[in-house]
């Protein structure tokens, strides 16, 4: 059984919601990424998404764009990210998802790349720009690798689309809480409840909700709608501010993560 399925079963048994965080791999360096993932696990995070930096991140808002630019400037490649994952795996069984645009996965052949991604210790892949219409061709490579294919459902996806999307999904389904790019929002959009409810009608897979969640209140609210809550840009930004000594310290970031985790877990 995949680590992702396992963690969601454990969460369900404990009647808890899952806390998923996103980090851009290699921002500011790959050793820092390894250290941070381990710190996140200690702070109560259930699943970690590692973003493969890409030159043209058109689904990402400013914070994640800047993080990708920093990582690419530091020379991060997929091979480097996979080494970092091996380092994490030596110390933690936390489920890991590779969040990536398609092109870096295609460069050396998708099948070969997914095998390497799985071997390094990733549990799932979330391709940003691979809608179900295109997914069919790539499905055999996913199946062969044994990786979970994390699919996105958007507020603009109607029942027919959701039904089609979940056919390719495994691990969990990622519900986008609002039309837009990644990044913090003042409040969770009204779309959030509708999109999770619609997705729930078509799948028994766990649902995660994300895009724009940045406060404990929002996280707590989002946790009532889905099985897990994803926090990305807000964490990337906090860590970057601590790195550049603009605001806060690494210790403060970790305690914020703890607070967010508690808001999600409901303790």
């Amino acid at each position: 059984m995949s680590r992702i399925r396992e963690i969601f079963q454990q969460l369900r048994r404990a009647d808890r919601k899952g806390f998923i965080v996103y980090l851009t791999a290699g921002d500011p360096s790959l050793p820092a990424t390894v250290e941070r993932v381990l710190a996140l696990v200690d702070a109560g995070v259930d699943v970690v998404e590692l973003g493969m930096p890409f030159s043209d991140p058109l689904a990402d808002g400013r914070v994640n764009q800047a993080a990708a630019e920093r990582a690419l400037a530091a020379g991060v490649t997929l091979a480097g990210v996979l080494d970092a994952v091996r380092a994490i795996r030596r110390q933690s069984p936390v489920p890991l998802v590779l969040y990536s645009y398609l092109n870096p996965l295609l460069a050396r052949g998708l099948e070969n790349t997914l095998m390497r991604v799985a071997e390094a210790g990733f549990d799932g892949v979330l391709p940003l720009d691979l809608p179900p219409e295109e997914a069919e061709v790539f499905q055999p490579a996913f199946q062969k690798s044994g990786l979970d294919h994390i699919c996105l459902v958007a507020p603009t996806s109607d029942d027919q689309r959701v039904e089609r999307i979940v056919r390719y999904a495994s691990g969990f389904v990622y519900c986008i809480s609002r039309a837009g790019v990644t990044g913090a929002q003042e409040q969770i959009a009204d779309d959030a409840a509708a999109v999770t409810a619609r997705t729930r009608r078509h799948t028994a897979l766990p649902l995660a909700i994300g895009f724009g969640i940045s406060t404990p209140d929002q996280a707590h609210m989002a946790a009532t709608l889905a099985d897990a809550v994803v926090v990305g840009s807000a964490l990337v930004q906090r860590w970057h501010e601590a790195d550049t000594k603009k605001d806060g310290t690494a210790e403060q970031v970790r305690s914020w993560v703890k607070e967010m985790a508690e808001a999600v877990h409901g303790r």
Partner: peptide, 18 residues
């Protein structure tokens, strides 16, 4: 599906598919 041989298609985030 918008293909010319192996070229074309729709590789966009799900939000843009509808």
């Amino acid at each position: 599906r918008g293909y010319y041989g192996p070229y074309g298609g729709r590789f966009v985030p799900e939000t843009l598919m509808a």
